[in-house]
Simulated assay, not measured.
Amino acid sequence: MENADFEAALEGLPRGYSEGTFDGRRYGVTVQRSDDGRRNSLFARDLAGTDIVSFNLYRVANGKTFLRPCEMSSEKVVSFVLGFTTAR
């Protein structure tokens, strides 16, 4: 998986609250982005269970990107963002 795939999928998620599916389960997702795009966060909750996905992503001046999952693996975060589909 390329970092560009993850970032493109994250950018494709709507700002604010939305609902959709991941791995056959329905999630409520809140995405926040700073106006300059350098600070991004996502919090998702399984609407019928106890699973959550939460992280912050920071873009710094030298072009580097830092993913900071909240008490879970980076792999879980990446899998969720790439596999989440918003409800239409």
Rank of each mutant, 00 (worst) to 15 (best):
I52Y: 13
S73T: 14
A44V: 00
R38V: 09
D23M: 12
F80G: 12
R68V: 12
L57K: 03
V31N: 03
E11N: 14
R38H: 08
L82H: 09
K76D: 15
D46R: 03
R26E: 10
P69C: 04
D46I: 05
T30M: 10
G63A: 02
E7L: 15
M72N: 08
D46A: 06
R59V: 03
V78G: 00
N3M: 10
R39Q: 06
Y58S: 04
E7Q: 14
R25I: 01
L13N: 03
V77L: 09
G28L: 04
F84Y: 15
L82G: 11
E7A: 06
Q32V: 05
D36K: 06
M1T: 10
E75C: 02
G83K: 04
R88L: 07
R68F: 14
S79F: 06
F43C: 05
R15N: 09
R38C: 09
R39N: 07
Q32M: 09
S74R: 15
A61P: 04
G12C: 08
G37S: 14
A48L: 03
V78E: 06
G24Q: 12
E75D: 13
R45N: 07
F66E: 14
S34K: 04
F43L: 12
R15A: 12
K64T: 11
G24Y: 12
Y27P: 00
C70M: 15
V81E: 11
A87T: 05
S74T: 10
R68C: 08
F84Q: 01
N62D: 15
R26C: 02
S41V: 02
S79P: 02
K64L: 12
R26K: 06
K64P: 01
G16V: 05
L82V: 10
T86H: 01
S73P: 07
E11Y: 13
K76S: 10
V77I: 13
V77N: 04
G49E: 03
S34N: 02
R88C: 05
G37D: 11
V31R: 08
A8Y: 05
F80C: 12
D46S: 05
F22Y: 14
F66L: 14
G28E: 09
T50L: 12
N3Y: 10
R68I: 11
R68A: 13
L42A: 02
G20Q: 04
D5K: 11
T21A: 03
S73F: 08
P14V: 13
D51V: 02
R38N: 14
F66N: 09
G83I: 07
S18R: 07
V78P: 00
D5C: 06
S54L: 01
Y58D: 03
G24D: 11
F66C: 05
S74F: 10
G20L: 08
Y58N: 03
L82W: 09
A61K: 11
K76H: 13
K64H: 15
